[in-house]
Each structure stands twice: as C-alpha cells, then as structure tokens.
Simulated assay, not measured.
Amino acid sequence: MTTLSPAHVAAPAIAVRARSIGPAVMVGLITTAVYTVFSWFQWKTFVVPSWDLGIFTQLAKQYASLDAPIVAIKGDEFNLLGDHFHPLLVLLAPIYAAFPSAFTVMLVQNVLFGVAAGTIAFAAGHLLGHPAGVLFGLAFGFSWGLQGAMEVQFHEIAFAVPLLAFSLTAFLRRQWVACMVWAMP
C-alpha cells in the first residue's frame, strides 16, 4: 500500500497554479514592455502632451523628501492636497527616492497597467481557458482607455486600474468582501 505525503499531494496543485499564472504573467510583461517602449520614445523625443508628468514628478519628489506636496508648476506654494486628494500617490515616494526621474514615474504607470492586464488575463483564463484569458488580458491592456492614459505619461488613475482589476476578479469569484475592499480605495 502506497501512502502519499502532503508534499506529493501539493505538488500537482502547485504545477497547475504555475501553468495557470504563466499566461497572465506573460500578458502583464508584454503590456508593460510595449508601454515602456512607447514611453521611452516620448521621453527621448521630448513629447509632452500634458502637464501631469511634471506635476506628479514634483509631487513624488516632495513625498520622497517627506515634505508636503508643494508643486511649483501649479503656482507658488501650491499644495496639491488642496487640488486633489490622492493619498495613494504617496506610494511613489520610495520608488522615486531610489530612482529620482520623471521617467521613473512613467515606468510606475506602465507596471501598474501591466499588473492590471495580467490580473484580467488570469481571471478570464480561469473562466474561459488560457487562450481566451490571454486575449482578454491583451485587449484590456491595449484598450483605448489605457492607451489614452498612458499617452499623457502619468495620471493618478494609474493606481486605480489594478485595484479595479482586483475588484473585478473578486466579483467574478463571488468574493463580495474582497470585491468591496479592492474597490474602496
């Protein structure tokens, strides 16, 4: 009589998860890479379609210095908390402190969009199979809305996109509390 140890039982489950997450990771990496190439061309050719990158780079610099978000682009001593309340942007501080550049801010947005596209691919893959999941993830990642947001180089909605993708995934799994928690920020 052969008995299976917990390791033997867990191994197939881990292999199934690894195969399941692979296509989603691929979608996230492709989305991030394509948007990063586009951002690099904007950066190298000095394309500036809006003031947002400058505004949010100054905000990240202030937060990285542990200062109030005074943004000179908007005016002398202009505190951005009086204009918009976006506490999630404090998450830019440690990244900007490590890599102080406006291009870093652009890369953060690209990664956040890639995470969201991978999340959508993962959820769709569980419901419809991996090929359809990849297609849904790529369709989401390169949708008109995300392309428009990415084209302006950075906007605070960048942090909302993966949160909404996580919320949608929880909704599809009928995990109502998780859905609400991810949607709340």
Results as ranks from 00 to 15, higher is better:
35 Y>P: 04
150 M>Y: 08
3 T>H: 07
70 I>A: 00
172 L>A: 13
112 L>Y: 00
181 V>K: 03
46 F>Y: 15
46 F>P: 01
106 M>W: 04
133 G>R: 05
98 A>R: 05
140 F>E: 03
132 A>Y: 03
129 G>D: 08
34 V>W: 14
44 K>F: 13
79 N>W: 06
48 V>I: 13
66 L>A: 11
135 L>C: 11
143 S>Y: 11
126 H>S: 03
121 A>V: 06
8 H>N: 10
58 Q>A: 09
15 A>D: 07
60 A>T: 02
184 M>A: 15
158 A>S: 15
111 V>T: 09
157 I>L: 08
184 M>P: 02
130 H>W: 12
88 L>I: 13
14 I>K: 11
169 T>W: 14
2 T>S: 14
165 A>C: 07
20 S>F: 06
110 N>S: 08
101 S>E: 06
89 L>W: 11
112 L>V: 02
66 L>W: 02
118 G>P: 03
97 A>I: 00
54 G>I: 02
168 L>W: 15
108 V>K: 03
99 F>G: 01
101 S>A: 11
22 G>P: 02
49 P>H: 07
5 S>T: 09
54 G>H: 12
154 F>M: 04
6 P>F: 09
89 L>E: 12
73 I>F: 11
112 L>Q: 04
58 Q>E: 15
108 V>M: 03
40 W>F: 15
105 V>I: 13
16 V>D: 06
177 V>L: 15
163 L>Y: 01
170 A>S: 12
173 R>A: 14
29 L>E: 08
24 A>H: 04
45 T>W: 15
65 S>N: 11
114 G>D: 08
99 F>P: 00
13 A>H: 10
84 H>Q: 13
94 P>H: 08
11 A>L: 13
10 A>V: 03
95 I>M: 03
77 E>I: 00
28 G>E: 04
41 F>D: 04
115 V>F: 13
167 S>F: 05
138 L>V: 10
133 G>E: 02
137 G>V: 10
105 V>L: 05
185 P>T: 12
77 E>D: 11
35 Y>E: 06
94 P>A: 07
4 L>H: 11
64 A>F: 04
40 W>D: 02
52 D>H: 06
38 F>I: 15
122 F>M: 03
85 F>R: 15
51 W>P: 10
70 I>H: 06
1 M>F: 09
141 G>L: 09
81 L>G: 07
111 V>R: 02
134 V>D: 13
107 L>R: 03
163 L>E: 02
140 F>N: 10
62 Q>L: 05
179 C>S: 14
123 A>Q: 07
17 R>P: 01
97 A>Q: 07
51 W>R: 12
155 H>L: 09
77 E>M: 05
126 H>P: 00
95 I>T: 08
61 K>C: 06
70 I>N: 05
109 Q>H: 04
121 A>F: 08
31 T>S: 11
79 N>E: 04
142 F>C: 11
63 Y>A: 14
164 L>K: 10
161 V>G: 05
42 Q>L: 10
51 W>T: 13
169 T>H: 12
185 P>H: 06
175 Q>W: 15
70 I>C: 05
47 V>I: 14
83 D>S: 10
151 E>R: 14
